[in-house]
Amino acid sequence: MKLRTTLLHRLPGIVPLLFLTSVLSFGLVQLSPSDPAEVALRLNDITPTPEVIAETRARLGLDQPLPIRYFRWLDAVLHGDLGTSYVNGKSVAAELRQALPPTVMLAATATVIMLAGGLLTALPGVFRPGSRTDRLARLFLFFASAMPSFWLGLLLLQFLAVTLDLFPIGGMNGPASLALPALTLALPHMPAYARLLRAAMLRTARENFVLHDRARGLSPRTVMKHIFRNSLQSCLTALGMSLPRLMAGAFVVENIFAWPGLGRLCVTAIFNRDFPVIQAYVLLMAGMFIVCNLCVDICAALLDPRQREEAAQ
């Protein structure tokens, strides 16, 4: 019941947010200095004479004033039509539909690796802070957070795929090909979770209710369960930001590992000044951020009765 109130309070706020994102995703792309009509012609090996450019601009609707173009685009988007690519004339929606599953698969695997790895590296610090395993885990986390993903990806490629030949170098062929890109995507995000969780669990372990649990002689497993549940809040908030960021972050990783996902689609579209594809991608990512944050708020409310009441007020 209270969950429904939470939802009813949050949902109306999403409409203006989505409107704003649509303005931004349309407007920012239009700021690009180069003429998409000219680029589209060049890509198709047509010499861009002024006449042909004018004709192409008229065909793509680029000769209309900006607001009109925006509202036409918005109208089409609201009807589920994301337009057609300037470059190859294919439907943008179809291209996105094709590229979305590989990216979702990659991001989901990376999330699992990130959370599992974060938990594993956090636990030594919770059970035995300052122990050798804890110090080792922290050293590892330090390197993982300092490593940019393009560099990490190349290193993993060099050692695990080329030298040791354990994994395929690129492309999407079966689960083995998922391992390296997912790992590359997950590792730089992992330290944040491990640190958040470690700090939160150490803080919670000092809480009075934990002492009370132990004074009642509850088993260490039960006590740890309570500590864990009470430490999830900060990670949950971070997760709301990370999930879409992982999908957007697939940008670099997908290009290194030739992964046929959204990121690669978007990078190609950027090089080609393929506005409809870029706009659709930005809109999709912004929408993903909003939805993920909403999901996290719901999860937080499910977890904590105090937040449910706060939201209901």
């Binding site: 209710f209 002689g217 260490p220 904590d304």
Partner: peptide, 27 residues
């Protein structure tokens, strides 16, 4: 640790000073 733990609660009960924070807020 286990030997002492089994004696807590059912053998030795402790009433804590700060009751306000003595309960898990999520349960």
């Amino acid at each position: 640790a286990a030997e002492a733990r089994h004696r807590r609660g059912t053998g030795l009960g402790l009433l804590l000073q700060q009751a306000m924070t003595a309960f898990d807020p999520l349960r």
